[in-house]
Design a protein around this nucleic acid. Structure first.
Lengths: 169, 169
DNA sequence: TGACGATTATCAGTATAAGGATGAATGCCC
DNA sequence: GGGCATTCATCCTTATACTGATAATCGTCA
């Protein structure tokens, strides 16, 4: 896969050996670091409100969907149902979100934004935008667009990996 | 794809408004997802041994450096000292790593690989390589190299963000 | 109708990840 | 050489993230 980019013969393996290469040459390492960096930038830009990137994702998803069952949210933001319940509990504690039993199906809980939550989203918006921009700041606009395209492709390609939250299954 | 591909003037802002756009258009969201995906692939490929990507990073760093103080490890793998201590405690519990007080400076602890740890690295190698390859599998070799370059640039540019573990400060 | 498999939320447990605070040790400055 | 800020490892707390397990509910099919 990685191979066939014309390596002179005498090459012992067809695939790359990450072994012996510095961490900085490994996709996994760089992806983890970039994630760390974005989270840090987000927290810095949004320090005024106490909110995290994941909470922001969930609130945004709710804003788009109006109302949703936890399982639907879970697949929308790509999180484990356990984790979604966790985050929602915190958001509910801060009155950003309401949860009530679904009348249709008593197994489900229906989640919706409160006015507090909606207001927070508006306040957060500029900071979140700055965080996203700073994350990509090192690339030219062209490279940035290309990077985002590649990122999308990579995520879509393996979108069903990890605890698949129904609907992605 | 995302933005600024020719917007006529009259455009109110020079920067993008992520608001109202789907999560999938946000760098932070995609980076988090890709990180999730890589971790899942790594765990799947290395299921035989119980090891995580971060533990793998630390063991690899140790292999390269031979021996290192925790604070040095911390800056090498880009982790909080608290977190490094955490991970090392787990690795020590599994006999992958030895820790002893530095004779030079009694505040420091010197960490080194055990034979067990070295053996694990060898066993893990192929699985880790497969995980890395699968993470990037959706891109052509050319695009892959370009993506890695961009990733490096982004990380280096903001390398000092987040709890800066001495040495990066 | 009633049993049974599937689905939904949650609980318990473990592993990253970071912030704040503390205690021990160091080195430096006067 | 004695204070004293700094540094290093830890502790405590909070927040993602996932696995395994369980209880409640739902659909379906006999």
């Amino acid at each position: 896969m990685l191979q066939n980019t014309k390596r002179s013969r005498g090459d012992t393996s067809t695939r790359d050996d990450w072994h012996g290469k510095p961490l900085q040459a490994r996709p996994g390492f760089l992806i983890r670091r970039l994630h760390q960096i974005h989270v840090a930038l987000f927290m810095e830009e949004c320090a005024a409100e106490s909110i995290t990137p994941v909470q922001y994702s969930i609130l945004t998803a709710l804003e788009h969907m109006g109302t949703a069952e936890q399982i639907v949210l879970s697949s929308a933001v790509g999180l484990d149902t356990t984790n979604v319940a966790d985050v929602l509990a915190r958001l509910e504690r801060q009155r950003m979100v309401k949860r009530r039993m679904s009348p249709r199906d008593k197994r489900m809980k229906v989640v919706s934004l409160t006015e507090t939550g909606r207001a927070l989203l508006l306040r957060i918006d500029a900071g979140a935008a700055r965080a996203h921009e700073r994350t990509l700041a090192a690339l030219s606009p062209t490279a940035r667009a290309r990077f985002m395209r590649d990122l999308s492709r990579l995520v879509e390609f393996n979108n069903d990996v990890s605890r698949t939250p129904a609907g992605l299954r």
